[in-house]
Design a protein around this nucleic acid. Sequence first.
DNA 1: CTAGTTGCAAAGAGTTTGCATGGCG
DNA 2: CGCCATGCAAACTCTTTGCAACTAG
Lengths: 134, 134
Amino acid sequence: MSGSTYNTKQKQLIKSVMTDNKDKQLTCEEIADLLKNMGTPVGKTTVYRFLEKLTENGEVRKFIGINGKSTSFQLIDKELKCEEHLHLRCTECGKLFHLGCEFMNGVGEHIQKHHRFRIDNSKTVILGLCENCQ
Amino acid sequence: MSGSTYNTKQKQLIKSVMTDNKDKQLTCEEIADLLKNMGTPVGKTTVYRFLEKLTENGEVRKFIGINGKSTSFQLIDKELKCEEHLHLRCTECGKLFHLGCEFMNGVGEHIQKHHRFRIDNSKTVILGLCENCQ
DNA sequence: CTAGTTGCAAAGAGTTTGCATGGCG
DNA sequence: CGCCATGCAAACTCTTTGCAACTAG
């Protein structure tokens, strides 16, 4: 993206793990472990560095302190236009849900108009329990 | 609370700092520094331990990875009944706003009914920019 | 060849734990 | 006096940085 970058085997491997797990959040450690178990180990430092870059590029979403401890990451599905809606995350199973509906679109407007606050959809994660985990 | 506790000078001091700063979030380090500057130093370990306890008791709200780095804490104003509404937090100035209005109360219902998801008001923090910081 | 990339080892930051001392009730 | 609390130092975990070897273009 910005500046020049080389397309290395490590980057491809990390991206493929993120794609294979696009329904959940993974920590850098988990990503490194998965790659090691696949017989294609990638240095943990490289994983940290590349995920930071993917986050900056908007290809990945970063979750800080939401799970037990470590920062975790999840691939952003570009087709879902996630910038345009809020997200629900189940604190029990970790699943992410997209709140793209008419009613919820009105919430942003309400908060801007009546509370004079502009929600940042990319940073906000609404926490709670999904149907299965309730 | 749970089990027996002694009312020590350190606990009183920490609580008074939280009360004096109930409009903002403080890290354990900041709390310890404030107390040191007041001439009544309290060990950092004690601050960590007591804030963890206050969080468990529901007297304080814990913010993980929302600011730059460290975990921070803010006193919960019992009179505001914060369990009953969502909160907005300005990513710029750190101010916390309470979303207790008719319209927003309907949001929880909508999400339960139409998305089959139960929001956890105590864990959720909606991020964005307040009027002053926009 | 040149600049970006990798990954080990070491440094850092934040937080937790062990343990002997001290204080509340 | 007994039990909880305190706080120093050390351990720990997660993440970042320095640096020499390596590799894509």
